[in-house]
Amino acid sequence: MVDRREISAWRPRVPGVVEVFHAHYTEYAYPMHVHEAWTLLIVDDGAVRYDLDRHEHGTPGDTVSLLPPHVPHNGSPASEHGFRKRVLYLDLSRLDASLIGPAVDAPDVVDPVLRLRVGQLHTSLAHAGDELEAESRLAFIGERLHGHLRPRAAQRRPPDRGVAPRLRELLDARLVDGVSLDEAARLVHAHPAHLVRAFSGAFGIAPHQYLMSRRVERARRLLLEGMRPAEVAAATGFYDQAHLNRHFKRLVGVAPGRYRNSSR
């Protein structure tokens, strides 16, 4: 089978929508990574399997998948001919952080009405000038997602405040400048080896993988704003453009230049 990687990405003028991303992959598999935004995913052809919080999930039929921010996940084709997907990345103004836990517990929502509405939203986002329609459709989608997730929120335990969450906060704060392991260990008062082990055990991803995926996430936004890859590399903490290219292609499936050129 030919390894096909077709993508289209853009940032619409609709509040709350960070990015629209359409892709057709036949063999490409995402490694473990994170997003700063909510990932609202529908699959139009084929199927995707993915791991989230050490549990395997999939996207059959009328499923709408909602993957929460900052929680590592991967993804790979679950059918012979790959998959064709449409993704919306939504900021916390649409779905607040209190829903992250419930979304981890049940990321795949079987709801034909929700699935239809997400597809209609993608259609309206594809046409400049239809922003009011898109905002209206997004409001109804947010309301329906809240209806699915809110009852679960009251059942969640308070978040852990151990060394792993504190290291994640530090990595988020030092996204561009970075931080050495020794410095991080001093700041969170833990032995370096214990810190890496605790972070990997808590989140299913190593600290350096988390940092690189957050940098790639930032790079995506800047590329869609029109910045050149060399400028983006410097603005997001990568050593040079080649360093950006390597990690970007590993996490997105295409090079930064191709991703930028796919924007509408």
Rank of each mutant, 00 (worst) to 15 (best):
V34S: 08
V20G: 00
A37F: 13
G16E: 06
S76H: 12
V34H: 02
H33L: 07
D44M: 01
H24S: 08
F21A: 11
L66H: 04
D44K: 08
E56W: 07
E80T: 13
V18C: 08
V64Y: 09
V14D: 02
R13M: 13
R13Y: 13
G61V: 09
H33Q: 11
Y28G: 00
G46P: 08
E56R: 13
F21V: 05
G61N: 14
H22G: 04
P72S: 03
V34G: 00
R86Q: 14
E56M: 06
H55W: 04
A29H: 04
Y28S: 01
E80W: 09
L41F: 05
H81V: 05
G75E: 02
V18A: 14
Y50S: 11
P77H: 07
G61T: 10
Y50M: 12
Y30W: 11
W38V: 06
V20F: 08
Y50I: 03
S76W: 13
A78D: 15
V14E: 02
F83T: 06
D62M: 09
H35D: 11
D45H: 13
V34C: 10
V18S: 12
L40Y: 04
P60C: 13
T59D: 14
A47M: 11
E19D: 04
K85N: 07
F83E: 02
T39R: 05
G75P: 02
V48H: 00
P31N: 04
V17P: 01
T26P: 03
V64I: 13
L52F: 04
S65I: 10
V48M: 14
G16C: 07
S65T: 15
I42W: 02
P68D: 09
S76K: 12
G46S: 10
E80S: 13
E80H: 13
